[in-house]
Nucleic acid binder design. Structure first.
Lengths: 217, 217
DNA sequence: TAGATTGTTAATCGATTAACAATC
DNA sequence: TAGATTGTTAATCGATTAACAATC
């Protein structure tokens, strides 16, 4: 029972993709090693935080040397599960669903785009990134028969809860949720929300606050 | 000099849109008043946190009664700056830019979609949500002449930094950045990042961790 | 070996939760 | 008035930063 690993905080997890991105860029530039100090200047976080973060997962560095960029990049990729592949479907072939299919380079990180579904018959058969749009009724069976782990939800909030229920019923493991509603899923099903309008409202808040402060001077 | 207001933490700001969403739904359902206790059960956060959060902005409630839903909804809307209008342009009329133009109901929250730009001549003149795609060269002048506050960046990361520079040079106030790069902007320019691939990686991490733990049992 | 830099412990800071007096 | 529930202070918890011994 190797359950002793203490839980990694959301704060740390949230930073991992950004580390991964910077290390990937350094690797592409041919940089071989980097110290926490150098990385901290580049990323504008403290060196202390960088060392703490990495040490949650083990000793990736070497005293007196720093971190090997390629090794660290690979290890963080493994932590993020990017060394494995997962089949992924998109539910909702509207503007956003189609855009994500075309825009995200899913395959690059091991996500295999295998299906896309919609309730609109006008879209059935339309090819999107080499995959034809299927009727929503086929979704559940498709998930079961094609070993689908991840569903991307790009449907209106009114349908999202019921569709999520159907997906979890057939064993979906993770939902990338763009619908503007909080999903309630069984234990063990992972949900990551992308609430775009929330994000725009935060920007609006910062804009408003800045304008107000300026006028206060 | 009314500068004494202590800074509101990012943690609180991050929660405001979610409060706003729940209160809007309660309002639409005709709910008149709600206590922090009831709201806490609905939103699955502590009542203590709700009261602390609201009190950063002033006393919105009444002892023995709770909070008036409509009033609270309106006040949080004001805090988020949603009572004002801002002109907004989209820079990059590719899959994502077009999808956002069509998918987001910008006008609903006071964001007026006034322009969309691209470097691809094949797109010039194409109508998107009633707005024609213009050449990128016209962007800077358009921002100056049309009182544009917000730019949505849906262009490749290779161009994002330079375009952001051109935007801030002509006085853009806020950037909603979908490019997978960290922008460096002058003080007072607000940036909200939507790094979709980071989000997908976090989902991947949670999936990976859960699978690993399960096998550990 | 001396210098550099990590891994890790300790100190600080900030955010969340609990408790309760104020008050509607 | 009594009951309910806020606003706010105090206690706790967790995350970040600082410091430094370990070690490459």
């Amino acid at each position: 029972m190797g359950m002793a690993e203490k839980e990694i905080s959301q704060a740390v997890i949230g930073r991992l993709p950004r580390y991964f991105r910077y290390l990937g860029e350094l690797k592409d530039q041919g940089v071989e090693r980097i110290s926490s100090q150098e990385l901290s200047e580049l990323m504008r976080v403290t060196a202390s935080q960088i060392r703490q973060d990495f040490n949650h997962f083990g000793g990736f560095g070497q005293q007196g040397y720093g971190y090997n960029v390629e090794y660290l990049y690979t290890e963080i990729g493994k932590i993020l599960g990017l060394n494995k592949t997962h089949n992924l479907i998109i539910v909702g072939a509207g503007n956003l669903g189609q855009a994500l299919a075309n825009y995200m380079n899913f395959a690059r990180r091991g996500f295999i785009f295998t299906g896309i579904f919609d309730i609109n018959p006008a879209l059935y058969g339309k090819m999107i990134r080499g995959i034809e749009v299927r009727p929503m009724e086929e979704m559940a069976q498709f998930v079961q028969q094609n070993n689908v782990d991840i569903a991307v939800l790009t449907i209106p909030k009114s349908e999202a809860v019921s569709v999520a229920g159907r997906l979890t019923a057939v064993g979906i493991k993770a939902i990338w949720n763009f619908a503007h509603v909080d999903l309630d899923v069984p234990d063990g099903v992972q949900v990551e929300n992308v609430h775009l309008s929330d994000s725009l409202m935060r920007l609006s808040y910062m804009l408003e606050r800045y304008e107000t402060q300026k006028n206060d001077l």
